[in-house]
Each structure stands twice: as C-alpha cells, then as structure tokens.
Design a protein around this nucleic acid. Structure first.
Length: 132
RNA sequence: GGAGUCGGCCGGGCAAUCGCCUGACGGGGUGGUGUAAAUCGCCUGCGUCGGGAGGAAAGUCCGGGCUCCUGCGAACAGGGUGCCAGGUAACGCCUGGGGGGCGCGAGUCCACGGAAAGUGCCACAGAAAAUAUACCGCCGCGUUCUGGAAACGGGUCGUGGUAAGGGUGAAAAGGUGCGGUAAGAGCGCACCGCGCGGGUGGUAACAUGCCGCGGCACGGUAAACCCCACCCGGAGCAAGACCAAAUAGGGGAGUGCCUGUUGGCCGCAAGGCCAUCAGAACCGGUGUUCGCGCGGACUCCCGGGUAGGUCGCUAGAGGCCGUUGGCGACAGCGGUCCCAGAUGAAUGAUUGUCCUCGACAGAACCCGGCUUACAGGCCGACUCCUUAU
C-alpha cells in the first residue's frame, strides 16, 4: 500500500496503476448515447472505435459487441477480455476520453496478437484528442 | 493378441507477471445512534486469506418448483400422451418385464391402444386394390372349318366353369402334400399356420408340447378423420416486491353489500333483525357456455411511478461417504461438506516451459430429463475369434 501511495502522485500528475476498476467503465445508457452522438471515429477491419472527450481526468471504456456480428458467446467474451486488457495497459496515456468499441466480423476469427496490435494503433490515434 | 458391446470418469499441466467478480477479516475514509465506552451501515485505484463456468453452461423440445393473474368449479372446444408394472415433485424421462425387427453373441432398435363402431384413401402398373376380379392360360358344352382310313387331333366363333400356372404390383384373399375333378378350388383329409371360447401360469402386458370349436373369416393405412383411456387454467425473473429524480392528474387501503316476495320476532310508528324465494344492468380469467365471485355505499389515508437503484439471487427434489430395503430405477436412515452469482454483464491476458499439442463450446431465477455438438484419453464389466497352457 505504501508502494502505491508513493506512485500515485509524482510531479503533480496522476500516475495510474494497471487495474480496471468500475470508474473506468461506461455503465449508463446515457453515457453510451452521448458518445454515439459526439464521437470521432477510428476503424479498421477488426474494430470501429468511437471516442470523445469527457470532463474527467481519466478515460472510460464501453463495449458494444453485437451478437449479430459475433455469433458465439465464447467469441464475444474473448473479444471483450482482450479489449479490456489492452485498454487497462494503455489507459495511462488516454486520460479524459470516453471510448466505445464495436467489433467487426473479422475479429471473430483473428488471433489474439493481431487484435492487440490493432488496438494499440487505435490508442495512438485516440491520444491525439488530448493534444489539441 | 484382434474385433466388438455396454456403463462410468476426465476435458491440457506447471511457473512468473499484470488484471476481473465475490465472501470473510484487517487498514483507510464517511454517515447514523450514544454523554461516553461503543455499536450499526455505506464507500474503497489498499492488504491478507478463501471461492470463481459446462458435460453439454447449448437447442428451448418436455416436466416441476417459485411468482403474479380472481380463491378457482364444471361442460364443451383445444392440446398432449398411448404394450404392462414400478420409480419420481413431475414428465413425453428412468428401471424392470412382455411383444416384434436386427445381430453368431454381449446387446441393440420400435409413434408398440383400437382397422369384426363408422367414414375416407390405396398413386403407377395391372384384367382386378376389397360386397373381389377372368387379361393370358386351363377345362366342359355348342357351332363351324379342317387333317386322318380310323383311333384321334388342330383352328374359328359363342357360352359357361376355373384363382392351380403366367404376367403387374409394396400388397392379389393361408402354406405343403395326398385325395378329388372336365379343369380346378379348404371341395375333402393330414401336418403347419390362423381365429374364437375355455383351462393353466403371471399383479399385468402376455404366454401356452393343454382342451374344445371354426375350413379359415376380418389386405394395408389411425405420424387420415375418428373411437377409447389418462393428463392439461394462463403468463413468465423483462415473473414479482420495495426505494425513487422526471412527467401526468388522481391514486390507495379497510369495512359493507342491491331490489322485491313470503314468514317470524321487536317497535306506538317510521323502521330494524332473522330466515326464505325470486329478479337484475355492468365487470371479470383461457376460446365458448354455465356456475361461483366481485359489484352500487360508507370510512380513512396521501401519494404516484419513468430514468436509475435495492431485493428476488442462490442451502438445493444439493454433493460426497457409509448403511438398510429393492433384480433395478430409487427410497429410508446416519455422518460430512458449502460448491459462481455477474448486471454495458467477472471467471482472463502475456511470457516461459512440459506433454499425449488441447475438441465442442460461456452460467443469467432454480432444479429433473431429452436432443444435438465434441480433439484426445482413462477405468470397469461382458461377447465373439485366434493363440498358448
């Protein structure tokens, strides 16, 4: 615990851990519709990513993996886990952004490594929203 | 050793790092109560320890629990089940048995009630498909032509007999043999088969080296209508209960029961009470009908309910072990264990390593089944073949 408290504030900025607590999730229908309305987009053959600024100093993630796109529950769960893992490792760079990720058909059959690589590309694009 | 049948079980392992959900304890924060000690709750970028998908979690095909709908009662309609006996909360499931098919066998498969209650249907082919039928063939009689010396034979036409033979078909109205006959035929007989009645065994389905009767009728189809027996109210955890921003104006709880007839009692009377019979618009579940119920009035209260949240939500027809009863499904008793509970939805990712190189696939109120999918592997029982002793 002491180790964490020493990490938490360095140079007056939040240095976050690698966890994925509830704070970092979009849990309300209203949050989702806000992102859908005001989003910028980034997409490739695996994912479509919608993102917009929030007023918080931490990022939030929402998943929209459609049953219509990804037929089997096992495959949907796998995608969600991969996305969440990638997000929590990258979230220190993302800061005040709300992100909604939608899966596309090809992601169902892709191997984990390709999906992680794809997501890292997207995080690089999303980060730019904070630099303007 | 090979081939096979049945039943049960497992469903990648280990390590490191980073995470998620949940429970307990602790830390930190915060709120209530209390003079205080304390105590109760809530939150958590914190710590420790414990638990964290399946045999099918799947399909949603059956059956139940639970919840609400009006406490449900009957008839019809509608739906389901269908050899017998058990098991079970229940079932369309399971067990045991019977019958039939398949297999040398261990075993396995069966939508397995009724076709002499009625109606319908049976394509194509075939003469004929259900009160049988005569296409070819076979045979008698008549007729006429004809061969022959004759005996006897061949053909035409007509008429009748015949289901033994041919051919058609999924199916052609018992089979084999002998007798019989013009040729044939259960026409007669023997055996086999079949049906009916009885006896016997069995709880029963059913069986039958038993007795008697019948020449033998009654093709198939009931996953065609139908008949018979039994079962079934509807909707579902987005059930339902509670808290509660917004919005709209009513909403909720309790008690009581309408009108008339007749009789009795009380009262001076208006009237009241008890019993009795009759009537009534509207409302109400499952389609209809009926029953039954509610129903008019009075009193009291102020909330309501969308977003969102909390509960329902996991201790159960529960698992394991032993024991008793039972052929068994299963049941009784004793002991022991607590084993996911998410809700934009946890149960994972990365790296390394090992091996037999990892299939089908993800809980969403909970159980019991069925069905379907499935890489590879383990265990047990049994059958057949082969070899050896």
């Amino acid at each position: 615990m002491q180790r964490h408290s020493s990490e938490i504030k360095i140079a007056g900025k939040f240095i976050q851990g690698q966890g994925f607590p509830r704070q970092n999730r979009l849990t309300q229908a209203a949050n989702f519709s806000h992102v859908f309305k005001h989003a910028q987009r980034s997409g490739d053959k695996y994912f479509t990513i919608l993102y917009c600024r929030n007023d918080l100093n931490y990022p939030r993630l929402g998943l929209a993996i459609a049953k219509k796109r990804i037929r089997y529950a096992v495959a949907r769960n796998r995608l969600k886990r991969i996305i969440r893992n990638s997000f929590r490792l990258a979230k220190n760079q993302l800061l005040g952004v709300d992100i909604v990720i939608m899966a596309r058909n090809q992601s169902e059959t892709a191997v984990n490594g390709d999906l992680f690589a794809s997501l890292e590309q997207h995080w690089r694009i999303v980060v730019r929203i904070n630099q303007t």
